[in-house]
Amino acid sequence: MPFVLSRVDDRLIHGQVVIGWGRPLGVQRILLIDDDVAANDWEQDLYRMAVPEGVTIEFAGTAAAAARLGAWQADARRSMLLTGSVPSLVRLYAADPVALHRINLGGLHHRPGRTERLPYLYLTPDEYHSLVELELLGADITAQDVPSAVPVGLGALA
């Protein structure tokens, strides 16, 4: 089935993801897409501990994930796609624009070069322009950290 949520969040799996979104959406599988984590066994062990019983987690680097989007959607489980960076998102979108039609910006945090767009969302000018381009290609992008927050469109993040 289609992904129940495609989210960009540089903290990857944390409370908002597992409790805030995972429970109400009934998420059964988290697809964690991050090149560093995919290459690191002990980090994967940590993230496995973070998901509750009954939720499975799969790791992949961006390139591998782009090739597996179709297979993941053929699976009947309710899946959340999770990536920590805008470039990774752009790559995944290019691989399957339909699968990533709706994109949730959940949290990108302060880093040199980024400016505050929302309290939980800091973007560099490049990251912002990449997102605008995705929207021009047809993606539906909103920022929303938790379900109880009001979603904010890209236009308000300029």
Binding site: G15, Q16, G20, V146, A149
Partner: peptide
């Protein structure tokens, strides 16, 4: 109603 999860308001 509110779980003070992570960074939420």
């Amino acid at each position: 109603d509110v779980l003070p999860v992570g960074a939420v308001r």
